[in-house]
Design a protein around this nucleic acid. Sequence first.
DNA 1: ACAACCGTATTAGTGATATAATACAGTTGA
DNA 2: TCAACTGTATTATATCACTAATACGGTTGT
Lengths: 124, 124
Amino acid sequence: MINFDALIIEDGIPIYLQIVRHIKRGIVSGVVKDRDELPSRRVLSAFLGVNPNTIQKAYRILEDEALIESHSGAKSYMSLDGARIAAVRDELVEADAKSSVEALKQMGVTKEQAIALIEKYWEE
Amino acid sequence: MINFDALIIEDGIPIYLQIVRHIKRGIVSGVVKDRDELPSRRVLSAFLGVNPNTIQKAYRILEDEALIESHSGAKSYMSLDGARIAAVRDELVEADAKSSVEALKQMGVTKEQAIALIEKYWEE
DNA sequence: ACAACCGTATTAGTGATATAATACAGTTGA
DNA sequence: TCAACTGTATTATATCACTAATACGGTTGT
């Protein structure tokens, strides 16, 4: 069963996108595996304190990207293979590193300063 | 006159926040200086192809943070000093580095890999 | 078989974002 | 002086994100 304990909903970003991102990050890290069972829409909505429709919207997006298999009446499961996992990794890691580098460069931060910042915040 | 040529509006993030962020990044990089003149609401809205009210919303936020001075009928100007600039730098750099580190860690990327990614994307 | 789940769909309402069309009063330069 | 700007404010409309309350039919374990 996929775990959502580490997902703290923050505002400013649509909730359904945060749920999609959380699952995708799990895919990339290897915590989420092929055939893993997903909590039902109702169960997860109660756990996160959001509307079931919001969960459905997130799951729908993942299903449209063929990362989830859903069948009426039955539980939903992850559907992953090497190609899909690699695609998600590229999407997330590239987007994150690129946007971060772009922002830091635009603020006049040097590459050395950027690396120092990464090292600093890596230890929390 | 503050320049907005490098600002490409992307969707998913409110436009007024993107304008605020663009100006704040300019403050941190030193491109935007104290007493710099801002384009009028109407002029900037025409240049960016958005509604004047959206610009007003962005300028209002910056004025509330005492980074802009506006007086009815007159042009608007930046109002910066060392303390304000340092505060904006801390806000932006910290937020960017922290969120990036958090995302990469959650995806199972090691610190060394993260630094390699930064170096890779630094050259575009 | 059947209760308790499951996914799915629909309708309605709220708040935020953004556009559109004005209006009014203060300023500034020629 | 006065026309052309400025900031500011108002009202209306549209869309999206999210909540809320249901409803329907399929799956599953006991």
